[in-house]
Design a binder for these strands. Structure first.
Lengths: 217, 217
DNA sequence: CAAAAAACATACTAATCAGTATTGTTTTTT
DNA sequence: AAAAAACAATACTGATTAGTATGTTTTTTG
């Protein structure tokens, strides 16, 4: 095995375990010793790949937290069709079906925001997390805009505040899942999210033979 | 000054500074030494009042986090009138006017949930936070129920999921406020929250005395 | 193959952590 | 006024922390 591959594997092993542990227990609760013990490596390996703990978590945010939002909540927005169907299906899949999201741990984005938002010696961690949020928001805004252009959504909706509201609600419900014993909390959430999506529809008065619109679910 | 008063002041001083620092930087990021230095006390004082750090944060949750939710978001629900007006005014006041809530720090409830949800040697901290959430939820459910009984809200709404959705959205938006530079994020939020509240209103058909109705789902 | 560089291991340090043991100082009670 | 109790300060401990300095092994390169 070539050196380059081995190096990348070692680095990735540290990143993956670090993400898992920090997302579960928090940045300050997890020591570097714990991480290297878990993967069977040593300080030498860790500090060869990362200059300090801050740069380590910075890499984790770039390579894992960002990816979690991108692959799960941004990329699916490229699908074509009725935007309300797409959004409903997307959140339904991610919250109720996708076991890989390990919902008992909440949302990684919110977890890392809470963990790192007031760090001293901040190497720009806040900015990185803000950018993930911004990307998600812009993707949703464009998605909603396409829905309006395609004649599926009410052209009077405010795309920015709608996008922010959707993100806030899903991040919020994933946080509450961490403490509640209500197993149906995501099912309940989908119910109300659909109600909210109804406010994005084209009013009946304007509905004149629009093929994409669907009557009350 | 009597001994009892002095004791209570010392205790309260520790609780207040602990709440402030832990809510800002996190439970694991703040040491007991930091807290006592900030208030000019010593370890002797701290450990006379609290047996350990866990019981300390337990007291903070009981006496400060719980109170933040109660006084700001639960007690105002006792007001009488149109429930949608009351809720709209309440959130508008708390998010856009009340400077004491120091919104750059996010929501204490979410902050503490994220900080303590996966503690080892958990002295029941999760349970305490869950109870705050439950109290808030039940208070909202009862509030919505009174709105239905009073003929102000659609009697077909699901009060539980509606309550959960409102809490999730406001906790979510307060979390996003921590990283965003968008100063108007709470204004935008109020806009969409009002849209959501529209889904709780009594349908026009019923308002006009029409006895017929159709289920929304 | 040998020298050089890369990738990781070992052993340490100084600082900080939660918590304890002891002592000192007020207040209250007797 | 003496004794007791309450409250807080001082000085410590062992464990853990992030980070460093220096080895050792493996791979690449001339």
């Amino acid at each position: 095995m070539t050196q380059e591959i081995k190096r990348k594997i070692t680095r990735q092993t540290l990143i993956d375990k670090g993400y898992e542990l920090i997302n579960t227990y928090g940045y300050h609760a997890i020591s570097i010793d714990t991480i290297i013990d878990e993967v069977g490596l040593t300080k030498g390996a860790f500090y060869y790949h990362f200059s300090n703990k801050h740069h380590f978590v910075e890499a984790i945010i770039q390579e894992r937290v960002s990816k979690e939002i991108h692959s799960n909540f941004i990329e699916p927005l490229n699908e074509r069709g009725n935007p309300i169907f797409i959004l409903t299906d997307l959140f339904h899949d991610k919250l109720l079906k996708d076991k890989s999201l390990n919902q008992q741990l909440g949302s990684p984005l919110t977890n890392f925001i809470n963990d790192l938002s007031h760090e001293q010696n901040d190497y720009g961690l806040q900015l990185q997390l803000k950018e993930i949020f911004d990307e998600w928001k812009i993707a949703l805004i464009n998605f909603l805009y396409r829905g309006i252009e395609g004649g599926c959504l009410n052209r009077h909706i405010d795309t920015e505040s709608t996008a922010e509201f959707i993100i806030a609600s899903v991040e919020g419900i994933r946080t509450l899942k961490k403490v509640t014993s209500n197993e149906g909390i995501f099912y309940n959430y989908m119910q109300q999210l659909k109600n909210f999506f109804d406010t994005l529809k084209i009013p009946k008065e304007e509905l004149q033979g629009n093929q994409y619109y669907y009557a009350a679910s």
